[in-house]
Design a protein around this nucleic acid. Structure first.
Lengths: 252, 252
DNA sequence: TTGTGTGAATGCCTTCACAGCT
DNA sequence: AGCTGTGAAGGCATTCACACAA
């Protein structure tokens, strides 16, 4: 994941496993593309390829939704689009507020895929008084003072936090107090929220670090491969550092 | 979450489980904060709370790295910072290119947490000739024509794609051909890459859809709770749609 | 014959609970 | 006495492989 939940234990939601829920948007995107090309039906094999998963997983995923699909034929594209949309709750409109209209907040406000699928930017909110009134993506930025009123007036239940890390927890608390129960957090902080509130986080820095880990590992493998075979023993023989390099000094 | 690998099967990397790798940056961030406050040692309980995980998981994670930590005392903050940094490959410098300098690309370029942890923005690349030469985050944007040269001259192995969806696959192929082996993809597309190349994706739209799913579910629960008890039977009795509402008509 | 739907097997991750250091 | 390190247990998720429907 690039991503993770925070609260709510591993309770399967209405019988649909969390891992499956996380893939439904992927299938939906692939199906939408097929729909636009007026493709009437698709097999699990084809759709899986388009979504970047394997077909067994896709079929198992769909089996949690019900028995859509025709044996020997495949799935009806339009029908599946509708079923998945409904399952994800995209047949209704979700008003969303974005808090923190810096570079990132502006990018999110301008993001097209937003409006396309059931989400509507209800308001842009920033703490800087100088931002108030300025139009971003065609929407006038409002000051943080208005936060509670905006949430309540628009019945907003999903909030996006794109503030600096320092402000995130406080913003989060105000959002929750005003009635928001789902938060997408772009600030590099762990948010603490009461039970019943969902938090998902998107963290550039974490993703890069995970890539760096694998990148480093690739480099190490190359070196080992150049040496010949990688030493089969020599691992797991000494504690304190699984590698050979145990630095005697502490770094600054 | 919100995120996912693409290639490379579930092979545990050098014995460290993928799930653990994904949490190391979280621990590192919490430890860095402690370090800045000059806290000398920390227990698994405290650190876990700061990182938003439970302590058993944290201890198990650390056990894959080695036996750092002192029983009855806890972990030495500075030492752990170093060990995790080394494990993640952050003791070396990773030059990174960002392709696609729109709103999002600019936001990424300006992101501070970038430079702080071993990553260095080597170049900003955009296909728009009008962007070429313009400074973003203190770096002059270069044209896509220069892509291969930039990658090779700087020894870049990590690329960030922040282009529109339509351009992503092509950019990806050029990056890979030029020597990039890790890609962070912000474009809402499934990238296909050769073996040995890691892709992680960050997708706003998917995250929102997952939140919407749970949000919808909360609303449903409330309704059921208001009615009294949720009907225990009535589920799993009829195929074709796990719900009661089987629409006879297909939506547009 | 083709391709879905799904029990069964497998493997990974998390959680438990406690032995063993300091 | 306190807290780490880790076998063992339990729970999810993925994959396999095939019965069954069209």
């Amino acid at each position: 994941m690039a991503t993770g939940r925070t609260h709510r234990p591993a309770t399967r939601s209405r019988g649909i496993p969390e891992a499956t829920v996380a893939r439904l948007p992927l299938y939906l995107r692939a199906l939408t593309a097929l729909s636009e090309r007026s493709v009437p039906t698709v097999s699990s094999e084809e759709l899986a390829a388009a979504a970047g998963v394997n077909s067994a997983k896709l079929r198992k995923d769909f089996s949690y939704l019900g028995s859509y699909g025709t044996r020997g034929v495949g799935y009806d594209v339009e029908y599946l689009v509708y079923q998945i949309s409904r399952e994800l709750g995209l047949t209704q409109d979700w008003p969303v507020v974005i808090v923190g209209i810096g570079n990132l907040g502006a990018a999110l406000a301008n993001y097209g895929g937003f409006a396309s699928r059931g989400f509507r930017v209800a308001a842009l909110i920033d703490a800087d008084p100088a931002m108030a009134g300025k139009p971003v993506a065609g929407i006038s930025v409002q000051h943080t003072d208005e936060l509670e009123k905006i949430i309540e007036d628009n019945g907003v239940s999903i909030g996006v936090i794109a503030t600096p890390a320092g402000a995130a927890q406080q913003v989060c608390e105000r959002l929750v107090a005003a009635g928001v129960t789902s938060i997408l957090n772009f600030a590099p902080t762990v948010l603490s929220v009461p039970d019943g509130v969902d938090v998902r986080k998107v963290d550039l820095s974490i993703e890069l670090q995970i890539l760096a880990f694998h990148e480093q590992r690739k480099a190490g493998e190359e070196a080992a491969a150049a040496d010949g075979v990688l030493p089969p023993a020599a691992a797991k023989q000494q504690r304190k550092g699984p590698d050979g390099d145990v630095p005697a000094v502490m770094p600054a």
